[in-house]
Design a protein around this nucleic acid. Structure first.
Lengths: 205, 205, 205, 205
DNA sequence: TATGAATGAGTGTTCATTCAT
DNA sequence: TATGAATGAACACTCATTCAT
């Protein structure tokens, strides 16, 4: 599933880079002002296009947020899969997953903030959108768990469907903590270690 | 509305509080329509008061949500502390915590939905409000962890500040799952057991 | 059917004179700028109320036009019936009708212009609204025709349902002519006489 | 409008005119959705051309409506003149006129609807456009009247300028009635007879 | 305390029109 | 001629909040 060049498949009649340009502008504006306080006109200005142009590439304001989520998550998933594929040890894979998730906050703070905070401001997203991409992301976790079980490393009684959600919730809450707390007490590395250690213990036999 | 001219004539709590009446109405309306789609006038109607009256009890719309969160959480905290006080075993306390948290979804679905879903629709809540009550709630968890550590039951290396957040995040995600998923695959009891088991393992020596 | 004092029956929770004030403002603004070029804010300003206030008294912009039409027509109908009641001669009644219709242009030019020109700009009016009041107005005509037939003055073969429409269409077209033509060739009196004469000849035995 | 570069090279009309194709599409779309709800893009699609192409043939949206009116009316006028030329009797000519006008509703309902209903939705048409073609159409009537007067058949006191408008208004109102009423009470033939009879009586000595 | 009529700021979205190709 | 992506002006309507009773 290589990052496709021509992803402008499911939308109107666009060109090429404008889609991406708008998305990048949206991340910036959403992170700065919050979803509801962000005006389409601001995004347009930031992207260097006319207001109306945005509607050639996105259905509406909510759609920008959702597509942003999906496409960026896609990149993360691809990246994650690549890294995880480099080891056979489920414990190692799990560590990579946790580190990757938490690290995103540092490498792409705006994006993290938008996904963890602003995405939830969209009623459409929270109540109507049933996320495929998000499911894919979670399934990386359940696959790791299942693999660990098969190899006799992880406990057999754990139900991946429940555990994957628990782990994701925990990680997301940590991201929220960093993004929302002005001066966080805990640094990234400490968190990665604590969380990995804590959860691995829960997973292992 | 002149509900009661002679309110102080009897024993019964004189007017018991429009405050409470408005809060109850808000929970109902928020859960049904979502925070942003709920109108002050709807809440007023549901509560049987005039629009303006609401502003005698609450600063603004966001305030209703936040106070709702705080006061209801208060009840939960009191209740939780009472139950937890009945045992000395940190493991047992932890189980009670998890069960209590997840059980709320069944006993007060509207409330759960509002707290887990709608609360996040408030920008003020997510970015400006630094929750005291929420901190109190989390601290029940860290106290349990600390207690377990002191008793030599839980591992000493765990940092309660990080672990409590992980656990809360996990539990909240489970609630979200139930509230947002039309036909959830997992029932309450299974989740309580899985989660308790998984986390206790992570906690215990 | 006396002109009711409390006609604010079928709308929200208003006061008293504001409804009328808005209507008068609307006539002025619509006549000046045309329906589509008139902004709600202009009407509000002209009426001396806030934009939002208009929506306490009217459903929407189209509604202003339609209610304007209905209520003003009501007044005209009342007036017309009163005048017509003063004679028993159907011919005389017919003359009164024609004169009254055409005279309105002089006495209330703005109103005439709005009813004859702007009303038709409303798609809702032309295609969805099935006018009761307008029917009432037309029925004054058919009653005159029927009465004339009964008295043996008008021809018996004429179908009032068709003839009343023809006459109304003719009169309305005359109004349109005056309202749209900068320097009309024909004056009011000439028209009244010509039209009355022409149609009476068509009606009489 | 320089429809065709190479029109005189062959027999067949080279491309017969997108102009006509667009006009036909417009009639269809306007009749279906109403003028204001019709989008240029819809007309373009219906006509099988690009949006921009329309602006090579028409000045703007209003212009489509006005040209549509003029050109179609032109056809009607030609046709009408041809038929009227076949008799010398002004009474007969008048009958033909009435029948022709009313018959159009049956033969070209969409066109009738657009001319009688949608044309009025255009502010430009109602207030700025001073119709030549429409004047030509009306003048057919005044010519008939004048001819009748000269032949001593019609009354001499009638002013054609006023009477022609009355008659046109009456006919147009009848068309409006058919087009707007879901289940009209009166059929075409009845109307033609009633109206002809009624007006002829008004005209004749 | 309670009311509810009045306020007016605030904005996503549409779509006729243009123009570079 | 033809295209259709891009433009950006334009605006009705909502609703949280206020305040005179």
């Amino acid at each position: 599933m290589k990052t496709n060049k021509n992803k402008n498949s499911n939308k109107k009649p666009p060109q090429k880079g404008k889609h991406e340009k708008i998305l990048r502008a949206a991340i910036k504006v959403f992170a700065k002002n919050g979803f509801h306080n962000s005006k389409i006109s601001q995004i347009a200005k930031e992207a260097g296009v006319a207001d109306g142009t945005i509607y050639l590439y996105f259905k509406n304001k909510d759609d920008i947020l959702i597509r942003l989520f999906e496409e960026k998550l896609d990149e993360i998933i691809d990246d994650l899969n690549a890294q995880i594929g480099q080891t056979d040890d489920p414990r190692e894979k799990f560590k990579i997953f946790v580190r990757k998730h938490l690290t995103t906050v540092e490498k792409a703070r705006n994006l993290s903030e938008v996904i963890s905070v602003e995405l939830r401001q969209s009623h459409k997203f929270m109540k109507e959108y049933h996320p495929q991409k998000f499911g894919e992301y979670l399934n990386i976790l359940s696959r790791i768990i299942r693999e660990g079980k098969e190899k006799g490393i992880f406990r057999s009684g754990l139900m991946p469907g429940i555990i994957k959600r628990s782990i994701f919730g925990a990680l997301d809450e940590m991201v929220l903590y960093w993004v929302l707390t002005p001066n966080p007490k805990y640094d990234l590395e400490t968190c990665v270690n604590q969380v990995t250690d804590f959860f691995l213990r829960g997973l292992e036999k």
